[in-house]
Design a protein around this nucleic acid. Sequence first.
DNA 1: ACAATTGATTTCGAGTAGCAATTATGTCCA
DNA 2: TGGACATAATTGCTACTCGAAATCAATTGT
Lengths: 204, 204
Amino acid sequence: MSISPAALEAAHLIDRLERLTRAGDAPGGINPAQWEALRYLARANRFSRTPAALADYLASTRGTVSRTLASLESKGYVARMPNPRDGRSVDFALTAQAQKALRRDPLKAMAEDIDRALRQDAADLVDRLKRTLGTAIARNQGRAFGACASCRHFCPQAHAAAAAPHHCRLLDVPLSDKDSLAICVEQEPAAMPPSRAAGRAAMP
Amino acid sequence: MSISPAALEAAHLIDRLERLTRAGDAPGGINPAQWEALRYLARANRFSRTPAALADYLASTRGTVSRTLASLESKGYVARMPNPRDGRSVDFALTAQAQKALRRDPLKAMAEDIDRALRQDAADLVDRLKRTLGTAIARNQGRAFGACASCRHFCPQAHAAAAAPHHCRLLDVPLSDKDSLAICVEQEPAAMPPSRAAGRAAMP
DNA sequence: ACAATTGATTTCGAGTAGCAATTATGTCCA
DNA sequence: TGGACATAATTGCTACTCGAAATCAATTGT
């Protein structure tokens, strides 16, 4: 039931590292929360670029991300379009201006520090952080937001010789190679969980 | 000049981990920035509990931390007292209420995740994060905020058999065992730096 | 003694954040 | 077919963060 001093120290360091990165962010009128939204949109597949998905990803509320996206839209970083399959929903996409801004993502400064400090040990750090994040997400009863390719609904090479050879059994759509590397709201790790309904029911 | 994919991924994971911890914070009316201030005050020595030091630590501005501390004061978490050595300066201290609140620090949830996910590998994670943070601080031209015991002005066992056996050569004051583990604004790693003046001159 | 520096605070504007209420769809079932 | 209910997004409200610039007081260097 007690927490190890090393783990507490590690949590402290993660907090501090993130703090320094956030503080040292570049000009351009993009706030930390807005950067997180841009990063998400850059990695999310076409079924996941909605305010609701982003709110889940950030463990925030829909009201908050609605404002964040409105702010990004007014600055020209994202564009909004109606969702063809659900009239209530809205899809967002990055503009060229956002693609350009992401090339100066302040997170890259932290990545540089990691490279400088650890050289090839970085892979080891990634492994440990991944395991920790998995645990944290489970505790938060959140969604994993992993890549399609590691999802239990992913069916590789379902359509031979097509431009989109893979397939999602949940949404029943074909997926390209690029799609299969994007993150998805609906993604569920391929391993154990018995059914989607059971997984959802477990989070009241 | 290019950033390794592993480092970028690690930066991403650190960002996300911190985000989830921040979002899942407990009730009690303490916001993330306020938690950071409480954590700092809990670890800082008696020469470092001022708004200016906290602003440096958080890589924020004095105006911002002034507001944060005022907010904490109005909620009864910190108490303010004049600094005897400098009439401009103000010292802050945690109240009993804050000590109690810190026992429910949301950061402990992340520490638990680390323990659960990594077991004894946590020490390894700490090592990698420490090296990275050192690099990040150097890049930001910030102060290290390390413990007295690892400072170049620290003189261990200067006063034999006293309650405060150690000594700080910079401030010319005796230090207890407990003091020597606290973090300090003035701390400078014991290793290489030639002089304090030179270190300061390096920050425009 | 006086100018420059430093510590703290305040004001201002933009934005984040959570909660609750609202509107517009979509879904399910009797 | 309706009606009840669930869901997506947004907005009003309030509290707070954050940075920049201005102000005031105390200290330091020359």
